[in-house]
Design a protein around this nucleic acid. Structure first.
Lengths: 128, 128
DNA sequence: GTATCTGCAAAAGATTTGCAGCAAG
DNA sequence: CTTGCTGCAAATCTTTTGCAGATAC
């Protein structure tokens, strides 16, 4: 059984308010700024509980960190700017249509995929 | 300048012969089996040199490990079986055509992307 | 001979875990 | 009151790094 506690409420509120992908240490810093004492392991444990229950989606990116965000059920990916690291969600995903094609060419029945776009955002392009 | 040494030749030979994505510790184990004494840091340093020179491509997957393989210049992705971890390369990638669409909808000029498919291979599906 | 490799041990960084005390239901 | 949460310290795992000795060219 999953229990409701003050700390968990605070974490949920932060994740809701930030409304973007976050790492455990992002959350840790935000709590620190707000003078909320919390242990990193508590954060990790809770994030894992939530993603095991499909409340959060966890994604490991090329920077080797784990990013978490609410599972909106809407399938999506993100683009991350290589300069400023700002990121934007994308709704389009042409990959579902590929599943049959992949099944017949490889014999693999696709269950999921991870897609990470990297690029340069408009602001960073204009700076140079 | 990059030097040619016995150990590096051996590593290159293994990567060539295996002809699939490998982790540093995969290489380490293969060397061990062949009774080739080599240090893990040596492997890491060489793999990094090679991928910085675009001879290898490095990819961090959802299992949090770094996988390396020869850069064939041909853009491709892989499907990994969730049960047996066997993987197969894929030539198709519909994402390049998306770049203009993403540019106009988000302002990001895409520079690269990472895509990881997970599924169940034919053999594992038949087992059950 | 000098720049580059290598092995070793230690460090780094992210994440997990064991345990004892605390809090929720 | 019992199960689950938390903090703390230690462990884990992958990867990196400093340094001294060895090797390539």
């Amino acid at each position: 059984m999953i229990r409701h506690t003050k700390k968990r409420e605070i974490l949920i509120d932060i994740i809701k308010k930030e409304n973007k992908t976050l790492t455990a240490s992002n959350l840790y810093s935000i709590c620190k700024e707000k003078n909320i004492p919390i242990n990193l392991s508590t954060i990790y444990r809770f994030l894992n509980d939530l993603s095991n229950n499909n409340i959060l989606i966890k994604e490991i990116r090329q920077d080797k960190n784990s990013y978490y965000e609410f599972n909106t059920k809407k399938h999506k990916h993100h683009i991350i700017c290589e300069k400023c690291h700002k990121e934007v969600p994308l709704d389009i995903c042409p990959l579902n249509q590929l599943e049959n094609q992949i099944l017949s060419s490889t014999g693999y029945k696709i269950t999921s995929h991870t897609l990470e776009f990297r690029g340069i955002c408009k602001e960073c392009r204009n700076k140079k």
